Simulated scan of single mutants.
Amino acid sequence: MTTSSRPRRPADVDVAAEPVDGGRAVAVPTSRRTLRPADDRWSIRFDPRTVVVGLGLSALLLMLTAALIATGDRAFTLAEVASLVTGQGGPPGGEFVVRILRLPRALTAVLVGVALGVAGAVLQSVSRNALGSPDVVGFSSGAATGAVVQIVLFGGSAAAIAGGALLGALVASAIVYAAAYRNGMLGGRLVVVGVAVSALLAACNQYLVVRAEITEAHRAMVWLAGSLTARTWDHVWLVLPAVALLVPAAILLGRRLALLEMGEDLAVALGVPSARTRLLLLVIAVGLTATATAAAGPIAFVALAAPHLARALTRSADGVLLTSGLTGAVLLVCADLLGQRLFAPAPVPVGLITGVLGGGYLVVLLMRARGGASR
């Protein structure tokens, strides 16, 4: 969804200019609808399919989150969950189980999923590469390395681990950006350099774990698996500000991002400061990735798969950032629900579930790409 302060033509179907052979531009109708008030001072463009998909994902996310809170060693009805969450009372001991143990975990899963989904969509658009995601280009590995250094070398608290993850993500992203940036462009180099940096950081993480004492090594390995176990309100307050500030910032830059996807020359011709816009978007992606990793550890493949699924569902470039965030939240909550319920009474960390599912998705994605290239 985009807003504009300029008057719009009184048409129900928007018209977009697309370049064709010879550099000319032609008007192409799109499926966007236009809402205009009587005085015609502003307008809102939206794609009906994107709105429907967003509402559907929101409803699905609400149901999955309610199921995550309601089920477990002690089960609750949905009515009891709603009553306990809103503070209206419920079964004895239910407030502790729901509001102290399960609700923070569920909200952390939702916020981390939103952060990873938006970060993945931003990086795929900036790099113009289907494999551009934080866990592929090294941002998640940088955050993981910063956290492991805190755990192994300093035995840091939760706040220190979060700070280490943020610092590690910033350093890794700076290295990737500096190595990939050439003549004002990033392109596919971002992914290639990111894969190399990610491999180096993964080796560094393994070295730190091997040299650590058994207690710190176990703590680091549990964290590196990616887990939502024992998440508290402190983790919620860690991710919430980043999502509340950075996701709207990414959406505000969404129009520039869409133009960058169409090509460097076209974006510059339309007045987009490409280098500055890319840098701002990368900072947003790094911030979202770092806070998500600090809260839940490195969660694999959510940031990669969510934008692809969002585009397949909406079949539109409009609202892909917000839809990717909702898709990421649905994927992570669903993975946590599967990890807890299918493997009870010994739940599996959510990072392992997303790794298995995401690995299969990546194989399918690469096979489709190879099939398309062979035709």
Rank of each mutant, 00 (worst) to 15 (best):
G163T: 12
A180N: 05
V193G: 02
G194R: 07
V176C: 05
V149F: 05
A212Q: 08
R102D: 11
A165G: 05
A196C: 05
L167F: 12
A202K: 11
I161W: 05
A144L: 01
N205K: 13
A147I: 04
V195I: 15
L208F: 07
A179H: 04
A172T: 08
V193H: 00
M185V: 15
A109W: 08
N129I: 09
A178K: 13
V176D: 06
C204Y: 15
G194M: 06
A158G: 14
V191K: 04
G132Q: 09
V114L: 15
N129R: 11
A159T: 15
I175H: 06
A174T: 13
L201C: 00
I161S: 02
N205H: 14
V148W: 13
A203T: 04
G156K: 09
L170T: 15
G187Q: 03
V137Q: 08
V148G: 09
A178T: 13
I151Q: 05
N129S: 12
L123S: 10
L111Q: 02
L186H: 06
R105V: 13
V126Q: 05
N205G: 11
A180Y: 06
L170N: 10
S127C: 12
R128Q: 15
V195Y: 10
P104I: 13
G142I: 00
Y207N: 13
R189N: 10
R211G: 03
